[in-house]
Computed example of a mutant assay.
Amino acid sequence: MRRAFVSILGVIVSLLVTLMVGAPALAASGQGPVLIWTPTRPIAVRFEGILTQVSAIPGEWRVEGISFLVNAETEISPEGYTPQVGDYAIVSAIREGETLTATRILIREKRLFEFRGLITVLPPEPYDGEWLIGGVRVWVNSRATLITNRPALSYYADVKGRLRPDRQVEATEIVVLNPQDVANGFEFQGPIEQIASTPTQEGPWVIAGVQGLVSADTRIEGAPAIGATAGVTGKRLADGTLFFERIRVLTEAQNQVRVSGLIEEIQEDYWRIGGQEVELEETTFIDESRCRAAVGMWAEAIAYRCYGSALCALRIRVERPEE
């Protein structure tokens, strides 16, 4: 009996040795598959957007359709702030299988923004959704946005709201201006988005989101092209049509604005220089060869008007302030 047990044990050991030694050889020779189990590793992911669901911690949160878990170990910045639905969040998370668990949530500040522009895109009543006013995307929620006077296309509107990092304005108040209360003449500047396809270029143009009529009486200076920046002056006709009297295509140098002063604030998407906010883009070049950027240092920025009245920096040079 003992010999039989020893023999069986020897067979088992031989099989194990064969599997351990022979399996790699089989895999290398292509004679058969070898299943090797390896534990799955968590994957680090990053996403951002508007918080559409916030619950107690621990619990499930949501950013524009992406669900993730938040627990006591999740770092929330700014420290002490309680995120709310509508906040813009940048989320760092770990994916394990189908589960996303947030490790850090950064809430981006939404800045106050005010401007006036022409309404060129208007959702149907009750006007919820995205408007286009003066070339700026404006989000309106009739339950949260105070709208004074009935809006209509080609009417002017004064807008107050908070600027999101994606450059959409969440409107808190919109005052629609009666055309009779606004001067018939207008003037603005922005990118050329549409040129009439006629041989003489007469017909509807769109500049900075504003559609206007170009005729033989329109004075065009420079070589217009899609994407070029142009200054426009015009008037409103009796039927409400906007007529572009003059279109002046700006050169790159003419479209640039110089801003200089002490750095008052540094954020990921904008700096405040000498009281002026300057937006940062992926292509913005920051020259720190003279000193590191910090609040209190001197900065000179070359920027352009990118949307509404906002300035987007092309280049920023940082220096130490003069003693």
Rank of each mutant, 00 (worst) to 15 (best):
Asn149Val: 07
Asn149Trp: 08
Arg150Glu: 15
Pro151Ser: 14
Ala152Gly: 15
Ala152Met: 06
Leu153Arg: 09
Ser154Val: 00
Ser154Leu: 14
Tyr156Ala: 03
Tyr156Leu: 10
Ala157Trp: 07
Ala157Gly: 11
Asp158Phe: 06
Asp158Pro: 05
Lys160Thr: 14
Gly161Ala: 14
Arg164Lys: 11
Pro165Val: 08
Pro165His: 09
Asp166Pro: 14
Asp166Trp: 09
Gln168Met: 15
Val169Trp: 00
Glu170Val: 14
Ala171Ile: 13
Ala171Lys: 06
Thr172Gln: 09
Thr172Asp: 12
Glu173Cys: 00
Ile174Trp: 02
Val176Ser: 09
Asn178Gly: 04
Asn178Pro: 05
Gln180Lys: 08
Gln180Ile: 07
Ala183Gly: 12
Gly185Phe: 02
Phe186His: 01
Phe186Asn: 01
Glu187Cys: 03
Phe188Glu: 10
Gln189Ala: 05
Gln189Arg: 15
Gly190Cys: 03
Gly190Met: 03
Gly190Lys: 00
Gly190Pro: 02
Pro191Met: 02
Ile192Met: 11
Glu193Lys: 04
Glu193Leu: 04
Gln194Tyr: 12
Ile195Glu: 07
Ala196Trp: 01
Ser197Thr: 09
Thr198Ala: 10
Thr198Tyr: 07
Pro199Glu: 04
Glu202Gln: 13
Gly203Lys: 09
Gly203Asn: 07
Gly203Leu: 03
Gly203Met: 02
Pro204Ile: 13
Pro204Tyr: 12
Trp205Thr: 11
Trp205Ser: 11
Trp205Val: 10
Trp205Met: 11
Ile207Met: 03
Ile207Ala: 02
Ile207Gln: 01
Ala208Gly: 06
Ala208Lys: 14
Gly209His: 06
Gly209Val: 02
Gly209Asn: 08
Gly209Trp: 09
Gly209Phe: 06
Gln211His: 07
Gln211Tyr: 05
Gly212His: 00
Gly212Asp: 00
Leu213Asp: 00
Leu213Glu: 01
Ala216Tyr: 06
Ala216Thr: 08
Ala216Pro: 01
Asp217Ile: 04
Asp217Met: 05
Thr218Ser: 10
Arg219Tyr: 03
Ile220Cys: 09
Ile220Gln: 01
Glu221Gln: 09
Gly222Ser: 06
Gly222Gln: 06
Ala223Leu: 10
Ala223Phe: 09
Pro224Glu: 03
Ala225Gln: 12
Ile226Gly: 10
Ile226Gln: 05
Gly227Phe: 02
Gly227Thr: 01
Gly227Val: 02
Gly227Cys: 02
Ala228Pro: 01
Thr229Ser: 06
Thr229Asp: 11
Ala230Leu: 03
Gly231Pro: 00
Gly231Phe: 08
Val232Ile: 15
Val232Thr: 10
Val232Asn: 05
Arg236Asp: 02
Leu237Trp: 04
Asp239Cys: 12
Gly240Cys: 08
Thr241Phe: 05
Phe243His: 07
Phe243Trp: 12
Phe243Ala: 03
Phe244Thr: 08
Phe244Ile: 14
Glu245Ala: 12
Glu245Leu: 07
Arg246His: 11
Ile247Gly: 00
Val249Cys: 04
Leu250Glu: 13
Thr251Pro: 14
Thr251Ser: 15
Glu252Pro: 05
Ala253Phe: 03
Ala253Pro: 04
Ala253Met: 07
Gln254Cys: 09
Gln254Ala: 15
Gln254Tyr: 05
Asn255Gln: 14
Asn255Val: 11
Arg258Val: 10
Val259Phe: 03
Val259Trp: 07
Ser260Ile: 03
Gly261Val: 08
Gly261Cys: 13
